[in-house]
């Protein structure tokens, strides 16, 4: 790639990012209005509005935890998902159990580096596609809810769908532990000890991603520094 082409590409990419932020903000505002407005719209139809004081009390009881985890998710996942991917992922949800592994998997399949324009494009494509698939599967499921319900909820098949997340993380562990075995081993041992000594933490696995991730990054940094010196 010559200098002229590089300049042209960085112009295209700069414009793309700028427009992605603009579009991302517009659709985020629209989504927030729609999502927070929907309960009131439904209330208008049902003839009874949400009880705001009860909602405020309940928020203090259950919502504050999600405020903390929301901030942590934002800080951790934006670098992983890129700009377009982040706007989309936070609108469409299901980050840990789908969007993040899906985007990381896509990135590795085509071998792009983090922080590059390729990563930005691939991540956005991956999250948009997986979101559309979820929307389609759920729409089909809702249409076919009555015939599907007995099959999906049958006692025989139930363990399969109760274990979607372990099935996902087992496959991902095999794929990623190979990339940095020492870090994987230490983090897994430490977290296992932690969960065994404080079993009440088992119910908060999504929150425990924060110390686990921090430890993994810290160890990876030490290893990386050591390799730089060597």
């Amino acid at each position: 790639m010559d200098g002229k082409e590089i300049t042209k590409n960085s112009e295209i990419y700069g414009r793309y990012l700028e427009n992605t932020h603009r579009l991302g903000r517009i659709v985020t505002i629209a989504s927030l209005v729609l999502l927070l407005g929907a309960p009131f719209l439904i209330g208008l139809y049902l003839g009874v509005m949400p009880d705001l004081s009860a909602a405020a009390k309940a928020f203090l009881a259950v919502g504050l935890v999600y405020l903390v985890s929301g901030i942590a998710e934002y800080l951790i996942y934006v670098p992983m998902l890129g700009t377009g991917g982040s706007y989309l992922a936070f609108i469409t949800g299901n980050l840990i159990n789908m969007k993040v592994p899906c985007a990381i998997n896509a990135r590795d399949i085509v071998g792009v580096k983090s922080g590059t324009p390729e990563n930005e494009i691939i991540s956005t494509l991956s999250i948009a596609t997986s979101s559309l698939v979820t929307i389609l599967v759920l729409a089909a499921g809702v249409i076919l809810m009555i015939p599907l319900q007995p099959i999906l909820q049958s006692e025989t098949i139930r363990p399969a769908f109760d274990n979607v997340v372990p099935a996902l993380f087992g496959a991902m562990a095999c794929k990623y532990y190979r990339m940095n075995r020492p870090v994987a081993l230490i983090v897994l041992a430490f977290m296992t000890l932690l969960f065994s000594l404080v079993p009440s933490l088992i119910g908060s696995m999504s929150m425990m991603v924060i110390p686990s991730g921090a430890l993994a990054i810290g160890l990876a940094f030490l290893l990386w520094k050591k390799n730089q010196k060597d």
């Binding site: 992983m80 840990i96 532990y177 983090v187 991730g213 993994a216």
Partner: peptide, 8 residues
């Protein structure tokens, strides 16, 4: 590493 942390 972050992803290893998540999976772990």
């Amino acid at each position: 590493a972050m992803f290893i942390g998540l999976v772990s």
